[in-house]
Nucleic acid binder design. Structure first.
Length: 220
DNA sequence: CTCCCGATAT
DNA sequence: ATATCAGGAG
């Protein structure tokens, strides 16, 4: 996409990103989180469980988990071994169980049992980084505080040339500069949907990609 | 940087 | 057999 007269490189970048967003919205009008949840606490737990694990398997585990654990107090008081068994199929189950218990205890002692609504408070919770905090802020609280950079967003953003970095925080800063703030949350969902269905890690389906004519990595 | 870790797709 | 999956902590 050539620069127009008087157009800065920065606004050109935004225009290209807008074209990407426009096409992906047409392709995935239903794009949203595929984790099942019905409260901020449930989304927080599901997102912690989703590390290196498919959403389908997380949902399989939480279907029963959320019936058994209904409050931060339930997780905080859970026996460590029992909670580990309850989440085992999601992998990393010892780390995740410890994170969930520690997170729940911190929510009880420091936030009155309610999931906090700020980035600073969320990332201070055990097992919660920027990615998980952005998921909760964007989806449970409707706040566009940042952009979720997971394995799909990283891969798709790199292939599209939207960032030259591999560090998630640097990628997030690049994306926040070119994506309008009110689109931050939906942008993450669009890249994640596209990453799962077309721009896959192993064998990307470039011939079926609606962005292949504006993608520097296209194989078509 | 390494470690954590089970389940599924290729 | 091996890569990959809504990462985070040490």
């Amino acid at each position: 996409m050539p620069l127009k007269r008087g157009e800065t490189k920065d606004t050109a970048m935004t225009a290209r990103t807008q074209e990407i967003i426009s096409r992906l919205k047409r392709e995935y009008p239903e794009a949203k989180t595929e984790l099942n949840w019905s409260s901020p606490l449930e989304l927080l737990v599901a997102t912690i469980l989703s590390a290196q694990c498919t959403d389908v398997r997380v949902n399989r585990v939480t279907e029963t988990l959320f019936r058994k654990y209904r409050s931060a107090e339930d997780y905080a008081q859970a026996s460590p071994g029992e909670l580990e068994e309850d989440i085992r199929p999601t992998g990393f189950y010892r780390n995740k169980a410890k994170a969930i218990r520690g997170m729940a205890q911190a929510i009880l002692t420091e936030h009155g049992g309610e999931v906090p609504r700020s980035m600073e408070e969320l990332v201070a919770l055990p097992g919660v980084g920027r990615k998980t905090a952005n998921v909760v802020l964007g989806n449970a609280f409707g706040v566009d505080e940042g952009i979720v950079v997971d394995t799909h967003v990283r891969r798709v953003a790199q292939r599209l040339g939207l960032t030259g970095h591999s560090d998630p925080e640097k990628i997030e800063r690049d994306l926040m500069q070119s994506v309008p703030r009110e689109e931050w949350t939906v942008f993450s969902h669009l890249l994640i949907f596209h990453g799962r269905r077309v721009c896959k890690a192993r064998r990307p389906l470039c011939e079926d990609c609606v962005l292949n004519d504006i993608c520097p990595s296209s194989l078509v």
